[in-house]
Design a protein around this nucleic acid. Structure first.
Lengths: 340, 340
DNA sequence: GACTGGCACTCGCTACAGTCGAGTGCCAGC
DNA sequence: GCTGGCACTCGACTGTAGCGAGTGCCAGTC
């Protein structure tokens, strides 16, 4: 049952070769390319054990071996060291991210950078509003019964929403409303505001009540509960590398999954803080993505986490490399955010 | 040389059958399915002429005929009537768009709707800032030397940008600046503001000059010149319908093109107002899209045009249907915008 | 007991030949 | 100008055969 060191070395060699060549790897090729110090026959015996344990499999009887999802998992957990970035890669990251003027700009640059570095599909979640603090709330009258609410978060995110007021509200009242919401909400985490927002209504002067009620409803509804999360996506063309061999010939399910924000958020939405998460093949809870792997991590200024980012590609991917790059990019982005 | 009515009917039949079946269509099948009133042999003669003129071609000697890009062009220009929408489709449009709370919301719903209706890739351009009027400019101090400029356009678009000031600016000065920019710019088209923005600096009180200079530079630079355009995209999974037959087996170039905002903007960025534009195959100026067709049109409140929207798919697409849907959706969105 | 060399076996891949049939072009006749 | 008939083309499919990479097993060696 136990996998001795050599068997593990064989597995590592198989993963590395298969990732590099995309072809099932046989015992002979293996001993040629790696210094295993044993003969092909011995390797074959080891392979038989590895296969029995479910770490590798044969596509056809007369073919070489290919890692299974379980094999990749073992590889990632125990057999790979995080690959240090090359100086060129470090430079690319810096060059790419320096000069961003905007949160939008930062996110877009980041997602393109990740896609380019890893040659996979990249996903970056905007800083979550739930984890941001309110920096300013602006109310702009559009007409007497319409208000545009613009919220600026400390992470740089700006969200707006149109509010339909129950009755016309004069300009002076808007000023009062603005003052009130800013006094009460600036500096607080949005996720924790429901009671605050509630209190807002109660503390308003009677003539402001109706307007404040709608306003607070909208604030709660759209900024806290609903589609508060945003995503940026890039590198979808990378799915077509490796011909049709990856993803068992059909990009369809993958492309479909990539169009579902909810799915992507679950994928890269950070869970445990700051660890890098790797989901391999059918570890994925979405059927459409059973042929794919995801490497993701959280990012944020300093040690806090405000959002997630990651890459998605075939299970046959360069895990150590991608993990290193995802981490590095997340760190750089965090530094960038911390500067604000 | 002249194509008489029957030859045109034959071409129309070929296009319709090929679009429906995705298979080269032969003379016999043609007379069976369409009441042409002549024998296969006659149709064959007509086909020979059509082929000579470049409207159709044979994939192989012993196969049926397939329309060329030129054939589709003739079909679109002279042989097809815009297909009226089905009641179900009309209902779908209304159901989908009613209840949008936001410009973002409108755009996202629209692009998804288009993708779903046409079963193609859909692209929607946000209302162009150049064609919008300034409704309000908000300046929010982030620190003493940093300002967030938020511009709200009459089309509902909200753009923000961080401004790094040359020197600390006290809160009172920010109020003055805000008042000044709003007085001068609200109500004007951004595309026509350069002189106005210029004037701003000159008219400012001396102590506001430095700040106003940076501010105006940023305004011009990012809101007018640079990436002022935004896009929404949906339905990329539709590219995989029709197996690998469309797009000669590789989605790569298409996916790459779809990642280039500039390319997409050129495609759907409206040119002549309000006509529906159809680009077929190699009429397309981007090499990557020579296997694709694009149907696009402008939209906007009332009769003005503020942005473009459209669909992209294989040259083998249902032109009359897609043209009808693109137009219908554009009209509905226009009405929706007009309500604001 | 672990490793190795040898050997028979499997099976996907490629090449080749043969058949089938859809579809064509052409021509003589109406 | 249209039609029916006919010879022809050529892709798609089928079946066969040979090749070779790769395996599993076994007997022999250290």
């Amino acid at each position: 049952m136990g996998l001795d060191d050599r068997k593990l070395a064989v597995l590592r060699a198989i993963v590395e070769d298969y990732v590099a060549t995309q072809e099932p790897v046989g015992s002979k090729a293996l001993v040629e390319r790696h210094q295993l110090g044993v003969s092909p026959a011995t390797v074959r015996n080891d392979m038989a054990v590895l296969e029995e344990e479910g770490y590798i499999r044969q596509p056809h009887t007369s073919a070489g071996r290919v890692p299974t999802d379980r094999g990749y998992r073992l590889f990632v957990d125990r057999l790979s060291r995080v690959k240090p970035l090359s100086p060129a890669e470090r430079r690319a990251i810096e060059r790419f991210l320096v000069g961003a003027v905007d949160l939008d700009d930062v996110v877009h640059r980041t997602v393109r950078l990740l896609a380019q570095l890893t040659r996979q599909v990249a996903v970056v979640q905007y800083p979550s509003l739930a984890r941001s603090k309110v920096r300013h709330l602006e109310l702009v009258p559009i007409s007497t019964t319409r208000l545009m609410v613009v919220m600026i978060a400390d992470t740089g995110r700006v969200e707006q929403r149109l509010v339909e007021l129950p009755a016309p509200v004069p300009a002076d009242d808007v000023t009062d409303l603005r003052k009130l919401v800013n006094e009460k909400l600036v500096g607080s985490q949005l996720a924790e505001t429901p009671p605050l927002v509630q209190a807002l209504v109660e503390e308003s002067a009677p003539h402001l009540r109706p307007a404040m009620t709608t306003l607070s409803t909208v604030l709660l509804e759209t900024l806290v509960e609903r589609h508060e999360e945003r995503l940026a996506l890039a590198g979808q063309a990378n799915l077509t590398r490796g011909g049709l061999l990856d993803f068992q010939g059909s990009l369809r399910p993958i492309l479909e999954a990539l169009e579902e924000e909810v799915v992507l958020l679950k994928l890269i939405g950070e869970t445990e803080p700051s660890t890098t998460r790797v989901l391999i093949g059918d570890e994925n809870e979405f059927d459409n993505l059973r042929a794919a792997s995801v490497v993701s991590t959280g990012y944020g200024p300093g040690s806090t986490i405000v959002g997630g980012l990651g890459v998605l590609g075939p299970t046959r991917m360069d895990y150590p490399g991608n993990i290193a790059m995802v981490r590095a990019v997340a760190r750089y982005v965090g530094e960038l955010l911390a500067q604000n």
